[in-house]
Design a protein around this nucleic acid. Sequence first.
DNA 1: AATGAATGAGTTTTCATTCAT
DNA 2: TATGAATGAAAACTCATTCAT
Lengths: 229, 229, 229, 229
Amino acid sequence: MDMKDRGDPSAPPASPRRPDGARNPEESRQRILDAARAEFSGKGLGGARVNAIAERAGVNKQLIYYYYDDKERLFGAVLEEAYREIRARESALDLDALSPEDAMRRFIGFNFDFLVENRSFVALLNDENLHKARHIRASEQILALHETLGRTLGRTLERGLADGAFARSVAPMDLYILIASLCYFSLSNAYTLSAIFATDVTSPEKLAERRGQATEMVLCFLRTPEPPA
Amino acid sequence: MDMKDRGDPSAPPASPRRPDGARNPEESRQRILDAARAEFSGKGLGGARVNAIAERAGVNKQLIYYYYDDKERLFGAVLEEAYREIRARESALDLDALSPEDAMRRFIGFNFDFLVENRSFVALLNDENLHKARHIRASEQILALHETLGRTLGRTLERGLADGAFARSVAPMDLYILIASLCYFSLSNAYTLSAIFATDVTSPEKLAERRGQATEMVLCFLRTPEPPA
Amino acid sequence: MDMKDRGDPSAPPASPRRPDGARNPEESRQRILDAARAEFSGKGLGGARVNAIAERAGVNKQLIYYYYDDKERLFGAVLEEAYREIRARESALDLDALSPEDAMRRFIGFNFDFLVENRSFVALLNDENLHKARHIRASEQILALHETLGRTLGRTLERGLADGAFARSVAPMDLYILIASLCYFSLSNAYTLSAIFATDVTSPEKLAERRGQATEMVLCFLRTPEPPA
Amino acid sequence: MDMKDRGDPSAPPASPRRPDGARNPEESRQRILDAARAEFSGKGLGGARVNAIAERAGVNKQLIYYYYDDKERLFGAVLEEAYREIRARESALDLDALSPEDAMRRFIGFNFDFLVENRSFVALLNDENLHKARHIRASEQILALHETLGRTLGRTLERGLADGAFARSVAPMDLYILIASLCYFSLSNAYTLSAIFATDVTSPEKLAERRGQATEMVLCFLRTPEPPA
DNA sequence: AATGAATGAGTTTTCATTCAT
DNA sequence: TATGAATGAAAACTCATTCAT
């Protein structure tokens, strides 16, 4: 768990030029993307300022338009990169190599940890929902990333049902949503919850505790046979 | 379950005047509040337009300033009203009159249903988190509303532990967060989830199913004794 | 010939407020319109600067948007007012009270003089043609103004044919276009013609001469029977 | 009448390279000029976009600056080429070989036809007038092209007066302007006229008719002796 | 001869807010 | 209590032009 959230690179390197002064288009693009992610996750699409992004990135504002056309598309590109990252890491979990229960623990733990360490992704998603997922739906890339999402989880589930580790049958999508709920909510709503309970609900201790509870909860659920209706 | 979400009153009554032509300050205030809620929940604080709110409310823009001083305070007032409503209904549940398990089912069901029927509240909270709960923290009223939040849930929990219905001890706040997670996430992230899974995750059927799963999950969890660490 | 071209009011009154300091929305609107006409006719729609219009009008720039929504619509409003003026004056000519030949002379003379004194109208029309008459076609008002345009000219023509003053039958629209050509071109192309001929083609003497020639030309044409094809 | 208007080459050849892959500076220059003419005549100097010109020409934007320094000079070059063409064709008419009346018919017909087939030239001139003929006056080449313009027409006029074909003495420049008026106006103002009269004033039939009328008008005028003042 | 990257100045437009009645 | 007029600051975006290769 050594990932770093690109969400808030407070100290932008002075210039996108290479030490030798040469231009570096690839780096420029990436710096813009990083700065945009920080700005968007902190202020939302509407609240983000293109000016601020340019400053954070240390590039001329117009360069943003040169590469990304407009704010909307930049937002889409940021989302795309963020999704690509989580899905890539998820694919690397190699759940099939673990026992169903361990695989499930690992999947839940990964999701929890990823969100904790990528708080900006949480903020991005919230905002994307405000905009009715407009950018996601416009991005074939993002949609393609998720075609296999249910698959891995589904396989683990089936293996568990087969070997008796699990006793309840759930649709993979539903299971995914339940898991994501438990990982996501206390981060997405960290500020309101903390205000209301007058305590920091994202302190390391609380997070550790909640990570355990989420895992437990899902496993309890899967282990218990569905009660007869 | 007959509550109506004030979130989107698309057709504003023609005028805040009463039939007899007299002015009606209370109604004006409320119309502004309703319009603001619709606008804020649809566009966020940053994306909402004071102009649009005035139009929705069918009042002059300046009247908004007359009553609410500025956009921020208007947002705060909207939040306040929304919180007041959910907490008031929650208090009316009379959990103590039910068996611990039934009380727990009722509490979860209520939360689930309330959010389903008040999608605008979900949107409002998301946005408030983007702003680091600034308005909530500034509102003594909202904070006061929550002083007893853990209490009722805690009592139910203790009753269940006492009579053997529950076997696991959780801090009421943590339990509340777990429950809220399961109720809230698929609504707050309905658009992104629906896009990604290429299906409507908030169809009535899916919602009913998820309501059941959330309840089951929490009860399984509470019934199962904590495994020895 | 005492009309004044509103095209270039170089010295804008300092403020749209009345001497007593009161606001004066009607005057504000008109000042914006006048300033816009000057700016548009001098620079074209694309070259005109909203800023410059605001300064000329002595009003806040935003007021322009308050009244006219955007630059395009402002341009349309300017066109509309200009067309309304020429057509109103034209209607006031009372051609039916004159002999056909005098009526024709008067019509031609009026058109010539109007354009000379409203050079900004000529510039406006040129620009509108660059934009494929987009604004005219969008304006029902302008279109309505012209429904009777051919009528008056047609009547004069017929009267002349009836009493033998004229010997050639032309469609009123065609006649109108021929007349307008002779009045319009040396004004619309004054700069290029003057450059090419290294002389001022719009000197008062030249204009007077051309006015006479245009009249003569049309009358010669109308008096001469159409040669057998 | 087989000339083609370079005004709107919508499909730019794929590349300025020759089939053998070699660079082709002369072609690049010409492609830029053609693209510029299309863009300028469609949008005006102010509305034209250097970017768009580059795209139309299929060359890199910077190449435009390499060859033409800036937008203004490019516009001047376009004008220059356009003027060169019309004057060259005009010189080739060989009016002196015809009877005065035929020569006059030919001159008028040529002007009419040239403008019909070079609508972009008309648009260019309109725009140049918006800019007070700045570019023409700056171009010695263009000015030189016109030194003899009045000459040919003047000779035809004199021949006609001498042999009695014409009865009216006009300054060649004035005659030129009258002729040009009749040829130019319904093209320069085609859109506004068509809008106002709710008909296409540049349909082939209308054009043919107007061509005849213009010729007739000028000849009537020249044949009729000036009335005593 | 030709190109992709980068920029600075400016443009329209938006928007919360205040003025004056 | 309610409104139409007016404003200043800032926003996104545009565009001709230059840099560096």
